[in-house]
Design a binder for these strands. Structure first.
Length: 97
DNA sequence: CCGTTGACCCTTC
DNA sequence: AGAAGGGCCAACG
């Protein structure tokens, strides 16, 4: 069982309208990995992985540039039904699983 | 093969 | 209250 597979599994199992933070995933894996690994895994994340649902612990959008534009990610999350507290801040409290 | 870096988070000073 | 450092795993050079 590779840690990476677990990360991909969790991220891939995030339901629509829900978001997760790097730290959440890190703790979800029993803390056997660090959030930095999640970020690193996201960097190497294969296509099909809803990495756009993964945000910072503050609820702010992650490196939106990776998706090609912060507006893109915001639009995508908004389409999925994610509640936005601020223009670029997601309400994790409600969007959290 | 060894060292450094990487999309982070949390604890302590 | 603000700032700094530590920590984990994997890939790249």
């Amino acid at each position: 069982m590779g840690s990476f597979e677990d990360i991909y599994q969790i991220v891939a199992q995030i339901p629509e309208g829900k978001v997760m933070s790097y730290g959440q995933i890190s703790k979800m894996l029993n803390g056997r990995i660090s959030a930095q690994l999640v970020g690193w895994a996201m960097r190497k994340a294969p296509m099909g992985l809803p990495c756009h649902r993964v945000l910072f612990a503050d609820g702010s959008l992650c490196h939106e540039v990776v998706f090609g534009g912060k507006d893109i990610q915001k639009e995508m999350l908004e389409q999925e039904g994610v509640f936005f507290k601020e223009v670029y801040q997601v309400d994790m409290e409600k969007s959290q699983v």
